[in-house]
């Protein structure tokens, strides 16, 4: 058996014997299966993944007819991140005209709902003008980002300082207060953007600060859905596993800590989310075949239990895309193709 040129999770190239590639695929899927209590990939799916790695093509793609919708979280922010001197309306036009984007997203570089409150009128004006000259559905997005609600950045005691002191109750109370404020801030900005004509609101990187962060996103979604039955609400997650920073937080009687994507999506649906963006983190110490098999095992189950569209997160470092500022085309195209073909998902 020969060796196959592939990559590690950090993007570094590596040659791996074919037998090890096959074993990595099986091991990656088994890891997700055991962690999530979900089915591993079957023999046919494992063979599909092996074949896609065995191909020497630099770039692979889905079969014609199997294409899916692309959403781009933090779109205008990423133009600035690359150092392009471009104002945001032109950035959105670049997404739809140059990149063939199916949707686009206006956002601020300080990508959190809290700091948007003082400048929301400026954001609304940009959005209103952008909507006049663009064609594709336009989201406005930001993160709940509960980290901004505790000392030294916010009004409440810092749970990470309280817990080492044994002040567990005080830490949990701080999270409770942060959830209330975060929901208020999300609603303030989201309602303003809906009034200005946004096609959708994106709650992005939800759960970044753990279970309280996820709860804030769910409560805000429910309140928005009750007020705006027809508006699109997309919820993109921060990680594959909801961290139990609070530990006992619940939504609709379900404990949030420890939930995996196929469990998260059910709560998102209940809250009124229109499109759910699950995450599987890339492990830099493992091979790309291992990471792709693992990510697909998680995402496949999430897609199967969902009743709403699923847009799997496949940016840098998630969805088996390598952890590197410039993810290589060979692995990204393989991950993109395999994810779409095996998961029967709705978008990325």
């Amino acid at each position: 058996m020969g060796k196959i040129l592939t990559r590690m999770g950090d993007g570094s190239p590596v040659e791996i014997p074919e037998a090890e590639i096959m074993q990595d695929i099986i091991d990656g899927s088994t890891d997700a299966s055991e962690r999530g209590g979900i089915p591993a990939l079957n023999d046919e799916e494992v063979k599909y993944l092996f074949d896609i790695f065995k191909r020497q093509d630099r770039f692979v793609s889905v079969q014609q007819g199997n294409e899916v919708v692309m959403s781009y979280d933090a779109g205008t922010l990423k133009i600035r991140r690359h150092g392009l001197i471009e104002e945001r309306i032109a950035s959105l036009q670049m997404y739809e005209k140059f990149m063939g984007a199916d949707t686009a997203e206006l956002c601020h570089v300080d990508y959190s709902y809290k700091p948007l409150k003082p400048i929301v009128a400026y954001e609304q004006t940009i959005l209103e003008q952008a909507l006049l000259v663009t064609h594709v559905p336009l989201f406005y997005g930001a993160m709940p980002n509960l980290g901004l609600y505790s000392h030294p950045d916010g009004p409440f005691p810092n749970p990470s300082e309280l817990m080492p002191m044994g002040k567990i109750t005080e830490a949990m109370e701080s999270y409770d207060l942060a959830v209330e404020d975060a929901v208020t801030d999300i609603l303030f900005t989201a309602e303003s953007m809906i009034a200005s004509g946004a096609d959708g609101i994106n709650l992005d990187t939800v759960g970044a600060a753990g279970d309280a962060d996820f709860k804030a996103g769910l409560i805000a979604t429910r309140k928005l859905r009750d007020k705006y039955p027809d508006i699109c609400i997309e919820m993109g997650m921060a990680g594959e596993f909801v961290l139990g920073m609070h530990g006992s937080m619940e939504y609709n009687g379900r404990r949030l800590a420890g939930l995996y994507p196929h469990q998260q999506v059910k709560l998102a649906q209940d809250a009124g989310v229109s499109i759910f963006g699950p995450v599987c983190n890339t492990n830099t110490s493992m091979s790309s075949p291992w990471n792709i098999a693992r990510a697909i095992t998680f995402m496949k189950e999430c897609c199967e239990v969902a009743t709403i569209p699923i847009h799997v997160n496949m940016g840098m470092g998630v969805g088996s895309v390598t952890v590197n500022e410039h993810p290589p085309v060979d692995i990204t195209s393989r991950a993109s193709t395999a994810m779409v073909e095996l998961c029967k998902l709705d978008g990325l």
């Binding site: 793609s61 919708v69 990149m99």
Partner: peptide, 14 residues
């Protein structure tokens, strides 16, 4: 990366 996804599996927008 966004372009890679768009080419590999996207609908092409407009």
């Amino acid at each position: 990366m966004a372009l890679t996804h768009a080419q590999a599996s996207g609908m092409g927008g407009m």
